[in-house]
Write a protein that binds this DNA or RNA. Sequence first.
RNA 1: GCCGGAGUGGCGGAAUUGGUAGACGCAAGGGACUUAAAAUCCCUCGUCCCCAAAGGGCGUGCCGGUUCGAGUCCGGCCUUCGGCACCA
Length: 758
Amino acid sequence: MTLDEKYDPQKVELRWQKYWAERGIYITELDVSKKKFYCLEMFPYPSGEIHMGHVRNYAIGDVIARYKRMCGYNVLHPMGWDAFGMPAENAAIKHNVHPSEWTYKNINNMKKQLNRMGLSYDWEREVTTCSPEYYRWNQWFFLKMLERGLAYRKYSYVNWCPSCATVLANEQVIDERCWRCDSTVIQKKLEQWFFRITHYAEELLQGCDELKGWPERVVLMQKNWIGRGEGVEVDFPIEGMAEQLKIFTTRPDTLFGVTFMCIALGHPVSEKLVKDIDTLDAIKTKYGKEDEKIGLFTGYYAINPLNGDRVPVYVANFVLIEYGTGAIMSVPAHDQRDFEFAKKYNLPIRVVITPEDVPQSAPPPPHPLPHGEGGYLKIPSSEGYLKIPSPLMGEGEGGGGNLLSEITEAYEEEGILVNSGQFNGLRSEIARQQIVRFIEEKGLGKATVNFKLRDWGISRQRYWGTPIPIIYCDKCGIVPVPEKDLPIILPEDVKVTGKGGSPLLESEKFLNTECPKCGGKARRETDTMDTFVDSSWYFIRYCFKKGDIDLNSELRTPDSELKFWMPVDQYIGGVEHAVLHLLYSRFFTRVLRDIGLLNVSEPFQNLLTQGMVIKDGAKMSKSKGNVVDPNYLIEKYGADTSRLFSLFAAPPEKDLEWSDKGVEGANRFLTRLWGVVYKNSDKLQVTSYKFIKNNSSPLADNASRLFRKTHQTIKRVTADIEREYHFNTAIAGLMELMNEITSFESKSDEDRAIFRFA
RNA sequence: GCCGGAGUGGCGGAAUUGGUAGACGCAAGGGACUUAAAAUCCCUCGUCCCCAAAGGGCGUGCCGGUUCGAGUCCGGCCUUCGGCACCA
């Protein structure tokens, strides 16, 4: 083969891409004789064009896949399309095309682009989530969850995006705004389907410690999101009522400091206690907003079961109905929110905790002390100032506490108990245990664990998603679609207008059906599933070749292909999915394990979260107008230059600052490489390594240096890839070797052999 | 507020476990080639002192500490970027 003098990436790349495709060399077959490696990049939403974020993500994944292949692994490296979702509907509204047509056209185009990048995918396993053969299994999973009580229907307040006209999961609300369109989210009462992810809360949290191959910060974000809180539930009797008020607290050591109670709006007891509708409305409008605390005295009093205190019960906007029991005990001296509330409504404050390292009977300080912030005395100590409560406070055991107008903040730290009857003098930590034991022994309540994690609302009033396989019958009620009737196909005859409720209500053919139980007239569920359901198991679908699959028979196959490939060995994608997608996938994997489909608990062994692509100080985005089109780059420089630059400019986990000049630098390197091979093609014809192998004659200094450098480079590149996937330093190493090669002058046959080796 | 990253030349970034700070690339300056430009190739390139060379001083956000030796470890700050946020 003769080389062109000039590096022509278009010619070279297309030639090899054709070669690969013709021979199908990236098609993966099950081969149990080799070690498997499942390399996965997050699949794209088919928006129409790939962007630099994709280029970066897929260049990283491709290097890993190719590296592992060359190391002798049987590599699974698939690609697919997260094809359901809003943009297709928006396009339908705007351009009057069917979402399906729009989506498939985009997939077609983007697939060409990915192939032009020279990515080594096995397209025989391509997944398209909007195809019935894919989403029928969404429906199947739904039925399985229903059987196990993991899917259920609930009437509740939901996050509602007025612009998208649909419900959002808690995870999809960012700063009270819709994660997609940025509209302000409102609360609406609707009946919705939920997945009981909270059933796995404890396991998902404990599983975090197994995620050794994940970035620490992602694991932490998962932990924070699950948000485990250990505490105790205590029943407070209400005067003049049969019901007791159950509260949850993580600070039972402050139970003697309760001076009032607060319940959430919508708490079952609240409706019995409150008559003032106007004030309730005011609280409603301020619900969950941090700015102002509003409350309404119910006229009722609760009795503190520990000390018999009679304390007023309020309805307050800052109490969350979804967390704990929807009711709290308020300890203004030791909780800032309670403190603010107490100030506003002139409620008593009673100190029950004092800082630990200050002696109880501290001698009067020598000088007049600054009467520091908030009724605390400031005592100079080795660690700056210690705040201790002024002696004015907390006097009079069993009294109503003192109203201290000069206090400005609550003392939320741990310390020694005071004014707490038999528990006086104990440290918070000890007191908590003893008080909990006391409460349990007396039957006043019990130790409990609460999570911040909520169940996953999956109903969406959208067209372009998986139909929920449920039928409503007047006689039989909620009836699941029998498995044999799957898939429930999304009807084509629906006009997407973006107005009103569920678009599926429009299709009479879809809506009206027979009840599978009694055969009578019935109607179908018109909501579709959240698209995060699709992406919660797509990595499982890749384990099979294209075409129909049968997960039922899979359940009975202990050594199936699925069990061979799972888990994913290396997952690569953006940090923006650190909570949502990754948490849902971990949940799904556990459910599928429990129904017998999988024998692993964690889907992703190793996770690499790549940074964003930045230009002019901001993330590349259409709305900011700072995008660089990969098409343009590939046309001008070729795919290899584009990939090389995105790997060289920064380590993968960091943000990548775009630089046009940097791209030229990457191109220059490839041009030099081409040039040195072209210019020396005669020397490269030498095929014998005997001079190296025999080492019979000592090498010339420069030859021995190049020889050593070559081996050092092999070692370094290998280490850089294996250690942290630091391709930037691996490439730097190759550039150094190139610099040595280009300055090398070969004079003898030995030299030429070394040169060729390098 | 809570949790977690990160601060190194003009810029992107190097520096396995404490051991020559600034690899590699970009930009910049000078030179060669050219009628000229582009491309390519060669040289310089943290900063200060010195005419220059040789040499030396100072340098990894700030202050202090441990050590023969600190970008790296410890304590205390400052700045900045993420995530969560009335979770009782």
